[in-house]
Design a protein around this nucleic acid. Structure first.
Lengths: 179, 179
DNA sequence: CCCGAAACGGATTCTCCATCCGCTTCTGCG
DNA sequence: CGCAGAAGCGGATGGAGAATCCGTTTCGGG
């Protein structure tokens, strides 16, 4: 990443700025270009694919999640750690619609995103290991399955008019406990 | 519905037949037309919108679900009834990708679909009432919330490589139980 | 100030969606 | 049977959006 030329940095910032005001699931490069006052070519140069743009938009949120994972790792009670983390992950996904695709996608286009995801997923695995050991999460569930469950819960919350995630989170946590 | 002319019935059947071999989430009318050996106009005449086509494709599955709801209503144990029904609903959704959109959509384009949905949703509500009364489902959850949870579970199962829905179903049922 | 590299922009091409209307096929009736 | 007109057909067509390509402009180090 050889430092951006000043005009390039300006364009990039404008595009991201405009993109943030759009539904992350329906980004139209031509519209973004017009609204940002740049050519379409410029948008495509900065973000070769929609996914690259979504990653860039999501990076902040991803960093926030990374911090929350560190906090959870520092928490001594395994039950509290996992409950807090799942709540945070769900909230962030609800707040930033682009987060779920980024977390689920196997191919990361940006190194920063890749690195953040590595730490997040690794940390999550750790916390889950502790939670299993402490008997607050069923030992027969894989890390992936729990990740998928969080995504499923996001989906469920989004289907409702009110987006009160608390009942859904309770159900998830109760369901995860060993029988 | 004033009975179809013979050529119209043939076209309709061909289109549905071809559509069934496609991903319900990515139906391209031009492709269907070519593969079915009819003009695009014909496809649009029979199914003015993608949703209308999905409804038609889904009707069989919807009827199956209706039958399963009746069976659940006849079951005397409320816990068994709801567990069986949720399992069935999840399985049908996984099997027929178009089912979730049809169940969730508020506007039904076909009367048959509307009627089936009425019975299904009404019956489900009944079963849920009994389940709450029997103490197998938390009383603070609305019918809609439970519906959304099933959809969320479908989403979660689909994210995984293996589509073994059993663990997800167990988690859902455990989570639904009162604390 | 100059020059090569970097970035820009938008015309253009390609693909896919959806409509419209002249032509064909069906069917019921005389 | 054969005809009339209703019903259905089909694909050319116009429109919208995606993505590319290349001549022009801008930047910044020497």
């Amino acid at each position: 990443m050889p430092v951006l030329r000043s005009d390039a940095a300006r364009s990039r910032a404008r595009i991201l700025d405009v993109a943030r005001r759009h539904d992350p699931g329906a980004l139209r490069f031509n519209d973004l270009a017009r609204e940002a006052g740049v050519g379409v070519g410029t948008v495509y140069r900065h973000f070769p694919t929609t996914h690259a743009l979504v990653e860039a938009l999501t990076l902040d949120t991803l960093e926030r999640l990374r911090v929350l994972v560190r906090a959870a790792l520092a928490e001594s009670d395994a039950g509290t750690a996992i409950a807090d983390l799942l709540r945070a992950a769900l909230d962030l996904q609800l707040e930033e619609g682009g987060l779920q695709p980024v977390l689920l996608s196997a191919e990361d286009e940006s190194d920063e995103v890749h690195e953040a995801k590595q730490e997040i997923l690794g940390g999550f695995e750790q916390i889950l290991v502790r939670a299993r050991a402490a008997g607050v999460v069923r030992p027969d569930l894989s890390t992936e399955q729990v990740e998928h469950l969080v995504c499923g819960m996001e989906h469920a919350v989004r289907l409702g008019a009110s987006s009160d995630r608390e009942p859904y989170l309770e159900i998830l946590l109760a369901g995860l406990r060993p029988v």
